[in-house]
């Protein structure tokens, strides 16, 4: 393990079996939601993970926190990250138990895992609430009494309860009002600084990723197709898929916007049950050659650039 890394993934695959029948199920195939991801998370960085709906971002997150067992591959945590990885879920309406007060929600994991005793837990809950910008006097309230943004703060506080070094934020603002989104993003940015967290930030909103991330990983159909620093990827995207994604962001200058090159993504993403042969992107790629349908590209550095890209035509 490299010393600057907190987390390393080596060729991680998460396949869901597809079955017919319930009592005597027959295996009919696999959903290859995560299909060979090699990735590292450095100390203190925010790694943005982008990709279309259904490409396996959430499944990768759930695999890292061990909610789902990886089918194959290695997930290693550095010694200092042994405290664990916690996840902030997408929907603050479904991620909080409607029958538990804020106090119960935050106290439960600390008490169960020995991070607090009955005597100290109230103080710790108050601390946590303060950390995420909630007044501790609300600790006896139930989730339905809070707004979406406040609920997401509670969910963030819960994720922090066990003092993880790594957070996985799975589209933490996509269910919120636009006016609230910035507050939650700023909170995450400030928590990262104050607590020295490393964050895997999942989103399909590229402007948010650009604003928050140090590095970006672009995911397509269960695989990482491009991985590099945010500055480099946004200035000079290399993979045709990344270029297509980026060209979909509107530019602020109308002249630029009118004259820019547009890469249109044809059709829907293929199914992760029967991914295309070779490069999974080739059926939608404007530059695809016969070779693309034959050879699986590997994530590798191209020329002098630090960014790694999985494309055989570069």
């Amino acid at each position: 393990m490299k010393p600057e890394n907190l987390l390393e993934l080596q060729d991680v695959r998460t396949h869901f079996p597809l079955t017919k029948g319930t009592l005597f199920p027959r295996l009919t195939g696999h959903v290859k939601a995560v299909d060979g991801v090699t990735l590292d998370l450095k100390r203190g960085e925010v790694l943005g993970l982008v990709g279309e709906s259904g490409c396996g971002k959430s499944t990768l997150g759930r695999t890292i926190i061990k909610l789902i067992r990886a089918t194959s591959g290695q997930i290693s945590l550095s010694h200092e990250a042994q405290g664990g990885v916690q996840m902030i879920f997408q929907d603050p309406y479904s991620s909080l138990n409607p029958r538990m007060t804020v106090f119960d929600t935050l106290a439960e994991p600390m008490l169960v895992n020995g991070f607090a005793t009955r005597a100290t837990v109230a103080v710790k809950v108050a601390e946590l609430m303060h950390t995420v910008g909630l007044a501790p006097r609300f600790m006896r309230k139930y989730p339905h009494e809070f707004s979406g943004g406040q609920r997401q703060r509670i969910a963030i506080a819960r994720a922090l309860a066990l003092k993880p070094r790594i957070l996985i934020a799975d589209e933490p603002v996509s269910a919120l009002d636009v006016s609230i989104q910035a507050q939650i993003l700023n909170l995450l940015a400030s928590l990262r600084k104050r607590l020295g967290l490393s964050i895997i930030f999942i989103s399909h909103d590229l402007s948010v990723i650009r604003h928050l991330s140090d590095r970006v990983a672009v995911m397509y159909l269960g695989k990482i197709v491009e991985l590099g620093s945010t500055a480099e990827i946004f200035a000079k995207p290399q993979h045709p898929y990344t270029r297509a994604l980026l060209s979909a962001i509107p530019l602020p200058d109308p002249d630029l916007e009118r004259n820019r090159e547009r890469v249109i993504l044809a059709g829907d993403a293929p199914s992760p049950i029967n991914p295309p042969s070779g490069c999974a992107f080739h059926p939608r790629c404007a530059y695809a050659t016969f070779q693309c349908s034959q050879r699986q590209p590997v994530l590798a550095r191209q020329g002098t650039s630090e960014t790694r890209v999985a494309c055989i035509n570069l």
Partner: peptide, 16 residues
């Protein structure tokens, strides 16, 4: 629901 996933991932025992 995600709160069940959250509970599982935070090591809350099954009975609880």
């Amino acid at each position: 629901m995600e709160f069940i996933e959250a509970a599982i991932s935070m090591g809350i025992p099954r009975s609880r």
